[in-house]
């Protein structure tokens, strides 16, 4: 039980850091670069920009081992995502579900589908039209952290909301 609580706290911390440090857009350098006014961060300063969605709102939530329930921290992030999506009506989203490597390939695809769907359902409950949200699972095929211990696994057990303008297909 102690271990579980520690895990919960760790995940909460990481979920917050993920908001400001998304792997897809590089790291702290770009955030720190806001003052220097480079293109990437000036874009991120625009609340209607995808960069703002990824960096400030937070494009991902993390999950416990073999779970698809949304943590309190995940729900905070997703409320932000829902709000952003409702303010930016021309964006569609594909929610990617992922698993860590500790599991069989087929099961992890199914588990990623559960995680992606948990996010989708939550966004819908917050008012995002279902037609703008699709899900996909990558199972354990696309880890972002490559070590084989919990410090990486916790980052890989994730659902990432990928936004784009236009058709979902």
């Amino acid at each position: 039980m102690n271990r579980f609580l520690t895990g919960g706290l760790l995940i909460a911390t990481l979920a917050i850091s993920a908001c400001t440090n998304p792997d897809r857009l590089g790291g702290d350098d770009e955030i720190a670069g806001a003052a220097t006014g480079n293109a990437a961060t000036s874009a991120a300063a625009d609340p209607a920009s995808p960069a703002f969605f990824q960096q400030s709102v937070g494009d991902r939530v993390l999950f416990e081992v073999d779970q698809s329930t949304l943590t309190a921290a995940a729900q905070v992030t997703l409320r932000g995502q829902a709000q952003w999506l409702m303010q930016n009506n021309d964006y569609l989203a594909v929610i990617e579900g992922h698993a860590d490597e500790q599991g069989t390939r087929e099961y992890n695809i199914a588990l990623g589908a559960r995680r992606a769907n948990a996010v989708r359902e939550f966004l819908i409950s917050q008012g995002v039209p279902a037609a703008r949200l699709r899900t996909v699972s990558y199972g354990k095929e696309r880890p972002i952290a490559v070590c084989s211990d919990e410090s990486c696994y916790t980052q890989n057990r994730r659902a990432v909301t990928i936004i784009s303008i236009g058709s979902l297909s």
Partner: peptide, 9 residues
Amino acid sequence: YSLSNGGNT
């Protein structure tokens, strides 16, 4: 085969 819909497989 498996089919996933609405998170259920």
